[in-house]
């Protein structure tokens, strides 16, 4: 499988990364080089093999239902590029 320029643009948009027209060509080449490299996996017989979900077999740890965090709005927004009254600000989102 290889990607065309249109796919590069679509993927860039899905990933929310602006791509200029000049970048599309080189990116397409790089992505196709990587895809060509991984292509060989298509030949591996994986019939009946479970995909790995956890590399070390163990039971998932769970938390008690207790309030142990919060009450730190000032810290939560401390690094925000734009903030007011402890809200994060973004350009208006139209629903």
């Amino acid at each position: 499988m290889s990607v065309d320029a249109q796919t590069v643009r679509r993927i860039a948009h899905l990933a929310r990364i602006a791509v200029s027209e000049e970048e599309v060509g080189p990116l397409q080449g790089e992505l196709n080089a990587i895809l060509a490299f991984v292509e060989q996996l298509g030949a591996v017989d994986v019939e009946g093999v479970e995909p790995m979900t956890s590399v070390t077999p163990m039971a998932m740890k769970k938390r008690e239902d207790a309030v142990t965090d919060g009450g730190r709005a000032r810290e939560i927004v401390a690094n925000a590029p734009e903030t007011e009254d402890h809200y994060f600000l973004v350009p208006k989102v139209i629903e």
Binding site: M1, V38, L41, G42, V44, V46, V49, E50, P51, M52, T53, V55
Partner: peptide
């Protein structure tokens, strides 16, 4: 074709 297959191959590697 890609992700699930790669995770299966991971199982084989392990």
């Amino acid at each position: 074709a890609y992700y699930v297959r790669a995770q299966k191959i991971r199982t084989l590697i392990k």
